[in-house]
Computed example of a mutant assay.
Amino acid sequence: MAKDIEVGGHNDFHAKDYQDPPPAPLIDAEELTKWSFYRAIIAEFIATFLFLYITVLTVIGYKS
């Protein structure tokens, strides 16, 4: 197809006009002292517990 031809070549190199930020540490000791970290852990636990609880009840209810 004639319209699928690329205008630029594959060897064109353009310098980036921005700087990549440095990588964030995997575990930040300062984060362990914040309430928002523990609030997120509690929310994840409750959501997972409810998901598993509803799933198990659905399977038990479906069998009987």
Rank of each mutant, 00 (worst) to 15 (best):
M1W: 06
A2R: 04
A2F: 07
A2W: 04
A2N: 08
K3Q: 10
K3A: 14
D4Q: 10
D4R: 14
E6W: 14
E6H: 12
E6P: 15
E6R: 14
E6T: 08
E6A: 10
V7W: 12
V7I: 11
G8T: 07
G8V: 09
G8L: 14
G9N: 02
H10L: 11
H10Q: 10
H10S: 12
N11Y: 08
F13N: 05
F13K: 05
F13R: 07
H14M: 06
H14C: 06
H14R: 03
H14W: 06
A15H: 05
K16N: 12
K16F: 13
D17H: 06
Y18K: 02
Y18P: 01
Q19M: 14
Q19N: 14
D20A: 11
D20I: 08
D20L: 14
D20R: 11
D20G: 04
P21Q: 01
P22R: 05
P22I: 04
P23C: 04
P23R: 09
A24L: 11
A24N: 12
A24C: 08
P25T: 05
P25A: 03
P25L: 04
P25W: 02
P25I: 04
L26N: 10
L26Y: 09
L26Q: 11
I27W: 08
I27L: 15
I27E: 04
D28P: 06
A29D: 11
A29M: 04
E30R: 10
E30F: 08
E30D: 12
E30P: 04
E31A: 11
E31P: 03
E31M: 08
E31K: 13
L32Q: 03
L32P: 13
T33Q: 14
T33G: 09
K34C: 00
K34S: 02
F37Y: 15
F37G: 02
F37A: 05
F37P: 01
R39M: 12
R39I: 07
A40V: 07
A40L: 13
I41E: 14
I41N: 11
I41R: 15
I42S: 12
A43M: 09
A43F: 10
E44V: 13
E44C: 13
E44I: 12
E44P: 03
E44H: 15
E44T: 11
E44R: 15
F45W: 09
F45G: 09
I46V: 15
A47D: 09
A47T: 12
T48F: 08
T48W: 06
F49G: 04
F49K: 04
F49Q: 02
F49N: 02
L50I: 10
L50K: 03
F51M: 13
F51Y: 10
F51R: 09
L52C: 09
L52Y: 04
L52N: 07
L52I: 02
T55D: 05
T55V: 02
V56R: 01
V56D: 03
L57T: 00
L57E: 01
V59T: 06
V59H: 03
G61R: 00
G61D: 00
Y62Q: 02
Y62W: 10
Y62G: 00
Y62V: 00
Y62K: 03
Y62L: 04
Y62P: 00
K63G: 00
K63T: 01
K63R: 12
K63E: 00
S64F: 04
